[in-house]
Structure formats: structure tokens, C-alpha cells
Amino acid sequence: MNTPHAPHTPPAQHPGAPVRSGIPEHGRIPKYYAAKVDIAALLDTLGEGQPLPAERDLAQRFEVSRETLRQALRELILEGRLRRLGRGTVVAGPKLAQPLSLASYTEGVRDQGRRPGRQLIGLDRFPCPPVLAVDLGLSAGDPVWHMERVLLADDERVGLESTYVAVERVPDLDTAFAPDSSFYAYLHEELGIGFGDADERLETVLATPREALLIGTPGALPMLLIHRFSRDTTGRPLERVRSLYRGDRFSFTTHLGPRAGG
């Protein structure tokens, strides 16, 4: 019987690693976790996009069963260290660090040297329901747009965005706006609408079967969901946005300052 070995403590240059590499104080760790840490160390020696050795070879190398190895690989995929490519598994690149700010998705991705893009799923116009009317400062029944787009980074599908905005604010959205471009840039440059402030709520969810199909991910993959309510520079409600991001490809950053009176 194989005896699980304690993984090495991550070096100091990995400040985001778990304390003591996730080993509990009693020192007993599951075999899959020991294999996971060993594979993670192997990934550090490989470059982005490099294929992982075959499961059989890895199982022999780390002295674990194929099923134990697969559990370790599943966790590394969920964490974004690995990704499936065809019938194989390759080393994933670093996560996209999207700022929690009024900057657009396009700006955030471009700032990291990636090529942003969007693929239109649907653009519909319908009478605004009462709940949405409150958010957008409208009367129930006023016309509203719903625009749904897949988010891309270097042609990789990484999220899904749903935008609700009053037709009176952007009457020509269906004819004058290029759906693969930045909506914020269109509002500012073409319509002279500036963003003043916004409220956001961030939570973790699982994608619905439809969302997983559109984004191209397994249904069990954790997703990061952001609800945003934006206002223009006059304080008037502007948009409601629901953005779903792949948990294995995104992290979010923000700057914190001292609280007034604290």
C-alpha cells in the first residue's frame, strides 16, 4: 500500500499559497491532496499551454491510483491551474484580474495584454416589468433593451453579460452599436453619457445548463456573479447588468482606503 507523503511547503515567493500548503496540524492528509501539491509543483516547471503528462504516467510517478489522481486534477482545473484542450489537459495561464471599478470589461482585459471581445447572443426590446422599472427609474411598460453577450479574452469564452437599459437612453442600440465593442465607450463617445457611480454585489454561483453551454464550461464549475446598478453623472439610473465570470479564469481586485470616521 502506498504511504501518502507530506508535500513540500511552498516557497516564500508564493504568498497566495495556503498556509503550510494546506496540511492540517495533525499531519494526516488525503492522498489526492498530496498528489495535487506535487502536480502543482510540476506545473511551475512547465509553460502556459504545455500538455500535462498522461494520467497513467502521473499516477505511477506520484504512486497513487488513477481515480486519486483524477480527483487532484479536477481540483486543479476548478482552481484554474489546468484546462482541458481537446482530449488532453494543458497548463492554464494566469487568471484575469478584473478591477472592481467603473472601468469597462474591455479596459480591464486590455490592460493585462489580452484581446477583449464579445459575441452577441441576443438583443431584445420589451415592455419593462415593474421590478426592473424601479431599478432603471422607469414606469412599468416603458420600452427597455436586454442585450446578452458572451465575454471573450483572446477568443476564449470567459463569461456572460446581460445588460438592461431604457430604450429612451439608447434608442438606436440595435442599429448604431457594434455588439462586439465596448458599450461604455459607445455611451460616452457617441451619446455623451458619462458614468457617475454604481452599486455592485458579488457572489459565487453555479451556472445554469444554458449558461454553461454558452460559456463552454462544465456545470459544476464555480462562477463569479456580479450584479451592477449604474447611474450617470447626474445620478439618474442608467443600466442594470448581470455579469457571470468563470471562477477558474477570473479574480477581482479593488483598492481599499480608510473608512470615514473609522
Rank of each mutant, 00 (worst) to 15 (best):
A140N: 12
L160Y: 14
R66Q: 09
A17K: 12
L244T: 10
I226K: 15
R125S: 09
H26N: 15
R70P: 09
G22N: 08
Y32H: 11
E67K: 14
P209M: 10
I39K: 06
I23G: 02
L69S: 05
E200C: 10
G235Y: 02
A207G: 03
Y186F: 15
R246N: 04
A140K: 13
P10D: 15
P51Y: 05
G47P: 09
L76D: 15
P143A: 05
P171T: 05
R125W: 02
D174I: 00
P127Q: 04
D174C: 00
A12I: 15
E48H: 07
A153Y: 09
P171F: 09
E189W: 08
T208P: 11
T89C: 10
K95G: 03
G219E: 13
E63R: 11
G159P: 11
Q119T: 08
I215F: 03
C128I: 10
A17R: 14
Q98A: 01
G80Y: 13
E75D: 14
R84L: 03
L82H: 05
D124C: 01
P53S: 04
G196L: 03
G216N: 12
R74C: 10
L52Y: 06
E156F: 06
G113R: 14
T253N: 02
E63G: 02
E211W: 01
G122K: 12
R83Y: 02
A34R: 02
Q112Y: 11
R246L: 15
F62I: 04
P237N: 07
R201V: 06
R246P: 08
R56I: 15
R28A: 12
A178W: 13
P7Q: 07
E190K: 12
R157M: 04
A153V: 15
L244Q: 03
R210W: 12
C128V: 09
F126R: 14
C128A: 12
I29D: 00
P53M: 03
F250A: 06
E67L: 13
L58D: 05
A72C: 06
I77E: 14
I215Y: 02
E75W: 00
R118Y: 09
I39Q: 12
P258I: 01
K31G: 03
R242K: 07
L225F: 14
I77A: 05
D124R: 13
P179M: 00
L173N: 12
L213D: 06
P222Q: 06
K36D: 14
H26V: 00
V109T: 14
A153G: 10
I215K: 00
L187E: 09
A198Y: 11
A92N: 12
L152N: 10
F183K: 00
E63W: 04
